[in-house]
Design a protein around this nucleic acid. Structure first.
Lengths: 352, 352
DNA sequence: TGTGGTTGCACAATCGATGGTGCACCAACT
DNA sequence: AGTTGGTGCACCATCGATTGTGCAACCACA
């Protein structure tokens, strides 16, 4: 029964208790004591005291002095999405294995919020910032740059810092081809039976749309002008796009290329309340992998972006001495329908 | 073209530039200047300077002085799961609207890691900690308590701090009943045709299992002893549980109660590679809601825990003066198959 | 005994902001 | 003239750690 809200022990407390100076205590506790030629026995004594008094370093004080914090930031567009949440999961593993503290925040795809968020993190002297799927990566770059903060873009590239992104063109090419081939030669797909939903004016969408277009043209001979229905990264807008489409055409197309799992949720909303039969012939390709999405009642081909490789590459790059900004492509993988892949959670141990 | 890595401006820089003292600058910049009877014109001058020199407060310094940081922590078991990631999303909204900075980290359901993580966050002087689904809430409590940190349990209750959890008994009761009723009277379910998979020795699992048991008994007259197959919170262990079950019984039961979406992923793994027909008669109830999970090729009844209400209640409690630890139940909701509900992302604006 | 090299540590400045206290100055009033 | 009561701000200690520097004490050796 110690006193309830006992103030945390500081190096000064330990200094008094041990009879050493605060600087000695500090050196012992942060591991630099050999360099400072502190006697082994002194060190042991202080370590013992620290243990007994449950000393923990005040990291704000250390951070202030060293002007870095041991925090490493990950800025996501949103949390609530398997693609981004698996990034967070993977990121955490990397950061922890380096003995630092991960900090994950989201910025809602709002350029203003992205910059504000970066600024806030900088005010806490974070050591590095991983910028995922930013709407305005170069805006965030400015903020980081002027604070001398190491940073890197992931998922969506910027012009002013290194970027690690998935090979969206190749992924979309594979996906489009797989959708088309799925129909075989008996009843082949016609150009006006395959539409792309989702997407926005960002690099990933542009690449995917370009590959979609080119692949359709190459394999089906044509791609009508209205083959792409932009609907941002919003389930509701995507829902409305499907409704509008049905209004115009009387039915859904036979095949869909869906730009992201978020747009895929728009399709779910469209399905809700409509008879399952309406979708029994549908074939869907979805850029992004979601285990549940892979088992829907119609064939869903998915593209799994290689999150582990992207994060690993990003960590490698962020430590290297700076060079001219470059974009690195990571190959994604085509996933067949009804696939339940392992994810970052599988590395955690669990008990039954 | 300022110098590349210009040091950030401090109140001392502005103090020199403005001819005022650092304390005056500080007061102006943190908004306490009226209380300190600083002249309006002085304040304006300093604010102008701050603007021009892109001053931003060093939050580590402020945090050191005030011994709090403006950071609010959320400790999750894992990120990569829609239940927890929607918590993170909702949490962020609340924290930001209070002008603080959210920090989301995961602790892998490992009691040791949970305590370490809490300790790290405390070392950064976070202001509050929301502990979600902790394996050892009371262990984390000790750590927080002895640092005088306000904290609250969510999803899994602790004995030593307030807890906000979903009403697992009632949720599981509704779910079990809905599964049973789903079969109607033509070909009613028999007691040995409904099994529970997943779960562990935590409060939520125990409640759900109890309700499952009681409801089965009440509606079907009996519940055989092996009606519950614990498999922790791991897709792979759950997969193996399904395989073992099939080994023993030659087939899956007609109906499944699945303890969480993580265990549900175990079912997906079991489905992968097996013929779809094997599951055409299956009826599943899943505790947790996942939009994609709701549209699987067989009926999936789901229980959506009311994340928004839980987080809101938690924020309310954490600000109240402390009283004896209490557990608050939040009613979950039974979700019919093929439902695509709105989530926290729907509050974000998006452009097409 | 004097010189030189090590050992082992203490001293003190510093990181940037905060907030209690004190004080000069001026106006108004007795 | 002396007292009272604002105004408007400056001074300075403080939060807890880090780190460059200085210096006694001791040993060895000539």
């Amino acid at each position: 029964m110690d006193q309830q809200v006992k103030k945390k022990a500081t190096i000064y407390d330990l200094s008094v208790l041990s009879g050493s100076s605060p600087s000695t205590v500090s050196a012992v506790l942060n591991g630099t004591w050999r360099k400072r030629r502190i006697k082994e026995s002194t060190a042991q004594a202080i370590l013992g005291l620290a243990e007994r008094h449950q000393y923990t370093t005040n990291l704000q004080a250390r951070g202030l002095r060293r002007s870095r914090s041991g925090l490493v930031g990950l800025m996501l567009p949103v949390h609530d999405n398997r693609y981004f949440s698996s990034m967070a999961q993977t990121f955490e593993g990397h950061v922890r294995s380096r003995g630092q503290c991960p900090v994950v925040v989201s910025a809602s795809r709002d350029p203003e919020e992205e910059r504000r968020t970066a600024e806030t993190l900088i005010s806490y002297s974070i050591d590095q910032l991983f910028i995922v799927g930013a709407t305005d990566p170069d805006g965030v770059h400015e903020v980081c740059e002027s604070a001398g903060l190491r940073h890197i873009n992931i998922d969506l590239p910027g012009a002013k810092a290194h970027s690690v992104i998935s090979d969206n063109y190749e992924g979309a090419r594979m996906l489009t081809e797989a959708i088309i081939r799925h129909f075989g030669n008996d009843d082949p797909l016609r150009p006006d039976e395959l539409f792309l939903f989702g997407g926005r004016n960002d690099h990933a969408s542009r690449e995917r749309i370009a590959a979609f277009h080119a692949t359709k043209k190459a394999l089906l001979g044509d791609d009508p002008d209205d083959g792409v229905q932009s609907s941002g990264y919003s389930p509701d807008i995507t829902l409305r796009a499907f409704e509008a489409f049905c209004q115009r055409h009387g039915k859904l197309p036979r095949a869909l290329f869906i730009n992201s799992s978020i747009n895929m949720e728009g399709l779910l909303r469209f399905m809700a309340g409509r008879p399952a039969e309406m979708f029994s012939e549908l074939v869907v390709g979805c850029y992004d992998y979601d285990p549940f999405g892979s088992f829907l009642p119609f064939p869903v081909l998915m593209v799994r972006q290689n999150v582990e490789a992207m994060i690993a590459k990003a960590f490698q790059l962020i430590d290297e001495p700076p060079t001219a900004p470059q974009t690195f492509l990571i190959a994604p993988e085509l996933i067949q329908p009804r696939s339940a892949l392992k994810g970052p959670l599988d590395t955690l141990k669990d008990i039954a």
